[in-house]
Design a protein around this nucleic acid. Sequence first.
DNA 1: CTAATACCCGAGTATTTTAGTCAACTAATA
DNA 2: TATTAGTTGACTAAAATACTCGGGTATTAG
Lengths: 158, 158
Amino acid sequence: MRLTTRGRYAVTAMLDLALHAQDRPVSLAEISERQTISLSYLEQLFSRLRQSGLVASVRGPGGGYRLVESSANIWVADIIDAVNESVDTTNCQGRGDCQSGSICLTHHLWEDLSQQIHNFLSSISLADLVAKRNVQDIAHRQVTQLLTLDENVRANAC
Amino acid sequence: MRLTTRGRYAVTAMLDLALHAQDRPVSLAEISERQTISLSYLEQLFSRLRQSGLVASVRGPGGGYRLVESSANIWVADIIDAVNESVDTTNCQGRGDCQSGSICLTHHLWEDLSQQIHNFLSSISLADLVAKRNVQDIAHRQVTQLLTLDENVRANAC
DNA sequence: CTAATACCCGAGTATTTTAGTCAACTAATA
DNA sequence: TATTAGTTGACTAAAATACTCGGGTATTAG
């Protein structure tokens, strides 16, 4: 899980979309102007967002992009995953052939933390950010997820 | 809050330190070998970690680095903050002079999300990662923090 | 005392990522 | 049919990342 400016741009653009695509599609030119992100860069980002099934395009005059699902079903983690290619963070590529056990251990610990961050961002929807409600719901989902963490951890291999 | 490979290296190195600095200092050469991170790069990272007061150095033969505080008091967010310089993620530099309200709104929403991520990583200590216990404690802290989120949000300005 | 250890520091550099440009194209519609 | 707006790919400047090199300095084992 990486969190760079690229992901920030994507989340910002999706937030703009969620705020403005109530009935009609929203063109990238609009988002570009409102959020001061270059049009061509938005095109690259939305190409990936479209391939990931988060948005759908409408061509021609009056066209633009719209959310495929309700903003309540779009998670921040999905947006960030869509625009970032995933990287292997271990040295042994998960083969588990590290020389000393300590290497595997720290890799393992990092992977676990990374998973926790991912779970966290998978519990926050665009609608949560926009509506600014449901904070207790988010917290509740967090508890549920973190309480099942031990099982995930046991299933991991270096 | 950025989460890049740089922060990953820092957390990995600090984890290595927490695992091995039980009594004696740990040299960067050891960490370099175990975690396959270049020595000079580690020197740069630990320079910042030292300036942030997270580690202390011991010079001379048998020297190295040690944690200033117990690993239970070192939070993942502190490590990542130490090695990354903070960036302003708004277009109006917090002056609030964006033309349309929608720009300020999305900036605001992103800032809020960023703060939530920071809070989350501020609730996980090195010791949590190592010990792999206290998951319920983490969850509990999460609840507490997220429930106070609304106040923070109200205090924000674009 | 001195040689070895290991931190300290700054300059420089290769690589990758980011962010953006440009140009040609296709689909849809007014 | 002209215009709008997405689609795609190649290309590029700028920044960040990851790393190297070459000197330092403090400490200590011998």
